[in-house]
Computed example of a mutant assay.
Amino acid sequence: MTLVLRDLTVEAAGRALVDRLNIEVPDGRIVGVVGPNGSGKSTALRCVYRALRPTSGAVLLDGAELASLKLRDSARSIAALTQESRTELDFTVEEVVALGRAPHTRGNQPLTAHERALCARAMDRLDVTHLAERSVLTLSGGERQRVLVARALVQEPRVLVLDEPTNHLDIRHQVQLLSFLRGSGLTVLTALHDLNLAAAACDSIAVLSEGSLVTSGRPAEVLNPELIRKVFGVDATVVHHPRSQAPQLVYDLAPTSSPAPADALPEGPHS
């Protein structure tokens, strides 16, 4: 399924949070959206999973406008992991994962054998099977993140929208998740802060700044020192992974000022 953001604009308080954004995610490909804080990444993704209605422009699924679909129908095609994903109810992990079947069921129908097997596979893929009977309220941030990704997979979507999916995950689970996405065959649009992870996992990268698209293309085309300096305000050297040849960034840390001498520090109150 092809996903297209066409001239997408979102305005709030007289300001364009996203300004005429055009991004295409071909069927089965992974496109990463990167940019500084406040560049419009999450706002654009919210329009795709319909938490936000764009001021103008459109989101297209295989050429059909997303706004023309019923919410249940779009939820059968698109699953999302949001930055605000929280579960405050005292559900077990198994119950939370099963909620991914909601767009496909009516009322309180029990899960079929196929659906139970689907939940089991998703929990196994995300390494949360051992947590099945635990309350989500007792989980660490990384464990909860993996549970919510499993819930998204149980929707059997054709499109995954992931807003910072590696947040809270340790390195092993970051690599496992991104490796799974690479081989999943799903159409994936993901916002990532880590440019090196984006370079390793994404087929192409869209760079945003102040709500506008700066450039897009293959990681090797996009991630260069000039762009990193212009968009992110830092100096970086590009090296290449010894096996995959994916570009990787080594950042130059700005020198810090020397500590003030002890006799220059203000005196504290006398005892």
Rank of each mutant, 00 (worst) to 15 (best):
T2I: 13
L3G: 07
L3Y: 11
A12I: 12
V25I: 05
V25Y: 01
G28I: 04
G28D: 07
G28Y: 00
G28V: 07
I30G: 12
G35V: 03
G35T: 08
A44W: 01
A58R: 15
A64S: 14
L66T: 05
D73V: 10
R76I: 07
I78A: 03
L81H: 01
T82M: 15
H104D: 09
T105D: 12
G107P: 01
T112L: 03
C119V: 14
A122F: 04
M123K: 05
R134T: 05
V136N: 07
T138H: 08
T138K: 06
G142Q: 05
L148D: 03
L153D: 01
V154Q: 10
L160M: 01
P165W: 04
L169S: 02
H173V: 03
Q174L: 09
V175W: 03
L178D: 07
V188S: 02
V188P: 08
T190I: 02
A191R: 11
L192A: 09
L195M: 10
S204Y: 12
S209I: 04
V214M: 09
V214R: 12
E221I: 11
L227S: 00
I228L: 08
I228H: 05
I228W: 05
D235Q: 13
A236D: 14
V238S: 01
R243M: 13
Q248W: 14
V250N: 04
V250S: 05
V250E: 04
D252W: 14
D252R: 15
A260N: 12
A262D: 15
D263A: 13
A264W: 15
A264F: 13
L265D: 13
